[in-house]
Nucleic acid binder design. Structure first.
Lengths: 234, 234
DNA sequence: CAAGACAATTATGTCGACACTTTTATTTTA
DNA sequence: TAAAATAAAAGTGTCGACATAATTGTCTTG
């Protein structure tokens, strides 16, 4: 059971919307490889829709920066630059902190309770499969998503959930490189919930920032290793 | 002379892109009123393009949350909620701070010089027309935009310039309510540049946050007054 | 055989048309 | 006359087609 906002559009929704969802998911999961060129006729045929319908979806994807289009040359899936990932983490750090600080002010007791329950679930999930699958890939974002909702700031939700998280999910899928420290992360999560429960927004902000910073540094380390170890082409 | 990133797409660009730019501008400036319904056939005719072309632009506008679409009912220009504006300012506060702190680390001496020159221009502009026109509507965002570029964080640029600033511009146009304290703002800007020049990223962050917070509080005050004074309908 | 010119193919940009929904106008009926 | 039923109009969702630009493949020529 997931609570991630990735509500795939219902079957009653316009075709364009469903195509958009499908495409976005495919891109994030790497089923359409990063950097690959997109052929409109081909895709349209694959999904069984007209090119016009597809193009509307592509326009939205472009606006989300999941694809890049150049006039008369077609669209490509974004190719993943390490720098951009780090950029994303930097932003996530301050926005995550803000979300948390607001959540400490605005979340209801019930919501906080649910948050705790979610963390318990995560703990079980980690124990069961040694922290290898769901939790690390999606579950953690689930936690962040709840806090985001608790912040009561709609714009925050749009920016993080509608844009930044996607990138991070994409990164995790493509390098299958989920957090190598699930228990530690869980502990940090628990501390954050504590701060929220105590309505200590300043502390909540600080803990969340630190949590995300740690994750970023982790990525940076991993990258450094990959650089010295693998062939450094490019 | 402006430096705002609102580069209107060249005449060689695909029609869709130009329509998108035109529409976005019209919405922001209130030429297409907030909350008004959009008729595809009508708009298409007005701009002399086919509906398909227009719809691609609308899809992008929707993704930018400048319009809202509901299936089979058409699109409406977003209507401006005070809460969302405040939400936006909260986000801008932390992101502006981040941008500034990064700018202090990454901006070149030349760029800082240009920033100073820009502020001198602004000062002149304020003196000339008593701070009534350009500077307050667009010029200030110009300043922020430079810093954004100096941060070297592309994602930041996308989020702020491509999303949040629009909302603030829209608000300013529609309530023609530019900063009532141009000289003070200018002073704050100068201090920020000082901090950047001294490579004091912590101070730069703090000053920028405070600057934006002040602007937000200003909006809040204005809103309170409007509430107690005007008829409180709704 | 390599390099450039030309032809054929494919892809993108843009349009007009049709089906089905929603809204508006009109007519019927209580 | 007001409300319900029905018809007309307008609007959105989706498609297929054509023009033009880009790419690929082929043929010429040095």
């Amino acid at each position: 059971m997931t609570t991630l906002s990735n509500e795939t559009s219902p079957l009653s929704a316009p075709l364009t919307d469903r195509i958009f969802d499908l495409l976005q998911d495919s891109i994030i999961k790497g089923e359409i490889p990063a950097g690959s060129k997109i052929s409109e006729p081909e895709l349209a045929k694959a999904y069984g829709v007209s090119r016009g319908t597809l193009r509307e979806a592509l326009s939205r994807l472009e606006e989300r920066h999941l694809i890049v289009r150049s006039p008369n040359h077609g669209a490509r899936v974004i190719s993943f630059s390490y720098e951009e990932l780090i950029d994303t983490y930097q932003i996530r750090e301050v926005l995550g902190g803000l979300a948390c600080s607001l959540a400490a002010q605005n979340m209801t007791g019930d919501e906080i309770g649910e948050l705790r329950r979610l963390l318990d679930e995560h703990e079980k999930s980690i124990e069961e499969d040694h922290g290898l699958s769901y939790y690390q890939k999606e579950g953690e974002l689930d936690f962040h998503y709840r806090i985001l909702q608790g912040s009561r700031n709609k714009k925050l939700l749009v920016i993080l959930d509608g844009g930044l998280y996607q990138l991070i999910r994409m990164y995790r899928y493509q390098f299958s490189t989920a957090s190598p420290r699930p228990y530690l992360a869980l502990k940090e999560h628990r501390r954050i919930v504590d701060a929220i429960e105590e309505r200590d927004s300043e502390l909540a902000d600080l803990l969340m920032r630190r949590h995300i910073r740690t994750a970023r540094i982790n990525v940076e380390e991993r990258h450094k290793n990959a650089m010295t170890k693998g062939a450094d082409k490019g």
